[in-house]
Structures are given as C-alpha cells and as structure tokens.
C-alpha cells in the first residue's frame, strides 16, 4: 500500500511539473480541490436532508408532523416507540427481514456469478438466444405478474413461507447482466487457460479465479440486492399471512391507523429503525469494498 502511494505521488508530481511547463494556465492544485469539495458537500447535504427529516419526524408527534416539516427534534420519541410496540413487534420483523435479505443476497450473488460466468466463457448452442431472451424478459412490466405468481405459489403449497421470497433470487437477470458485462472487461480468457493447463476443474476455476475477480462487482450488486429485498413490500404483503412472519415494510402497514389519523410519528420511527442499520452497514461495507479492490490490484 505504502509503496504504491509513494509511486503514485512521484508520478503525479512529475506530471504536475510537466503540465506546469507545457500547459499555460498555472493552477494551484488546492483551489479546484476546495471547490470540488464544496460542491460535493453541498450535494451531500441535499442528499442527507430528507434522511434527517425522517429521523427528526421519528421524534415528533402525529399532530406536529401534520403541521409541517422542521429540523428540530420533538419530544414524542418514547410515545412513538410505545405506540409502535403496541401494534407490532418491530424486532421480530427485523429478524425476519434480515433472514430473508441475507439469504436473497447470497443466493443472488452466487447464482448470478455462476450464470454470468457460464454466459461469458463458454460457447454452447443457443447461448446468445438465451442471453437475449433473459434480457427481453426483464422488459415485461412485473405489476401484472402478481396474480400468476400467487396462483403458482398456491399450487406449489408454499404460501405463507419464505420460499417464494427467497428462491426467485437465484434468477436475477439484472445481476447476471451486470456481472457478465463486468467479467468481460476484467477477466482475460488466458487466465482460465492457464488454470486449465494446471489441471484445475471448471468449477474450481470458477471458485478460485472468477469469483475473486468478480468480487467488487458482486459486492456492489449485493448492496442493491440486499436493499431491494429489505424494502420489498408488495411481494411479502401478498404472500405472507401470519403476522409473526411479516417483514418490516409489511409491519409498517399495521401502523397506518385510519386514513386520517395515522400514527405518522411511529411510522417514521419504524422506518428509521429499519433504515439506519442499513445505512451504517452500507457505510462500512462500502469502505471495505474499496479497500478490497485496491488490495487486489496491488498483488497483480
């Protein structure tokens, strides 16, 4: 790491010298940098404000929320929590959501990598047709598939279980598409050839060579998959019946009282409880991914 940075620095220094000689406008590096940071921070604030509002609203009473937005926290957080817990056991929902989302993420990550690798590095009959067909299927709007999906689950006897929420993740066309695109740019076939000559089996090559190279892409997609599954509302709503199996977004529905007098404060608290852990995990995971990328590139 250290060695690398030193090389970079010396490189960029030499370039700075060069550009100072060759290009006319002589700029100090720090001024555009400050400018860039300012812009980035303004953008960050714009992105953060609604999030903050959500957190603030979690501490405010229903009437206070209805009378408008503010960034000053209220004092109703304990009441909101009590109201919420009198309707739902949010921690049970948390556990259910976590189980589903983790399994979905793992399934989707592994099988998509498998499929993407299959599409990218083998030549077989019907390959292109199948790939195109997969892409084409992504274009049919899903809203109408719901009734058919329900019928299917009924016939398979898997209603009110997590199976219809988890297993379909093994077929995620978007992730397959992305991973295929990614591995085409990053993995050179000669690497596979070399491994074959060393006598490695096809699945071993996949597990020891392809997966590590795809890891940053898998991790990126995993974040999206996890969040998508975590926030998924309509599927668990339709498929699950037993309240003890409900996921977080479905439980949020319980909090909506009548149309007019909603328990807005507790809803925001519920949403905040469900979002903040993802946020934190994302912040850490995201850093981790960056590190693993640079770590990987040093070795080669």
């Amino acid at each position: 790491m250290i060695g690398k940075t030193a090389v970079d620095n010396s490189l960029s220094n030499s370039v700075e010298k060069k550009s100072a000689i060759e290009t006319k406008p002589k700029r100090k590096v720090s001024i555009p940098k400050i400018l860039i940071y300012t812009v980035l921070i303004v953008m960050a604030i714009v992105c953060f404000i609604p999030f903050l509002m959500m957190l603030v609203n979690a501490t405010r009473s229903n009437e206070a929320i209805l009378s408008g937005f503010t960034l000053l926290p209220g004092s109703a957080i304990v009441e909101n929590y009590q109201t919420m817990m009198s309707y739902i056991n949010i921690w049970a929902g948390f556990k259910n959501s976590l189980i589903i989302s983790v399994l979905v993420t793992l399934l989707s990550g592994y099988f998509s990598a498998l499929t993407a690798y299959g599409f990218a590095f083998y030549v077989f009959k019907g390959k292109n047709a199948m790939f195109v067909f997969m892409l084409v299927m992504m274009m049919v709007p899903g809203q109408l598939g719901l009734i058919g999906f329900y019928e299917l689950c009924k016939n398979l006897g898997i209603l009110d279980t997590y199976i219809p929420l988890i297993i379909p993740a093994a077929a995620s066309p978007f992730v397959v598409f992305f991973l295929r695109q990614y591995i085409l740019t990053t993995l050179h076939p000669s690497l596979i050839e070399a491994a074959r000559i060393d006598g490695a089996s096809e699945f071993k090559i996949f597990h020891t060579i392809a997966i590590p190279i795809m890891m940053p892409a898998i991790a990126t997609m995993s974040i999206f998959t996890f969040i998508g599954s975590w926030n998924n509302y309509i599927m668990p709503l339709v498929v699950l019946f037993s309240p003890e199996k409900f996921t977080l977004p479905v439980l949020m529905g319980f909090l909506k009282g009548s149309q007019v007098a909603q328990n807005l404060g507790s809803m925001y608290l519920g949403i905040a409880i469900s979002v903040v852990p993802i946020m934190v995990a994302f912040l850490f995971l995201s850093k981790y991914i960056v590190n693993s990328i640079s770590a990987g590139s040093i070795k080669e």
């Binding site: 009734i147 019928e151 709503l237 339709v238 319980f254 909506k256 149309q259």
Partner: peptide, 13 residues
Amino acid sequence: IVPIADYPTKLKP
C-alpha cells in the same frame, strides 16, 4: 391490518 391502498391487492388473491 393492511393499509387501505393495498387492501384490495392483498385481499383479492
């Protein structure tokens, strides 16, 4: 309790 907007969607099937 199912929110009113999703009530028919959930109930129908």
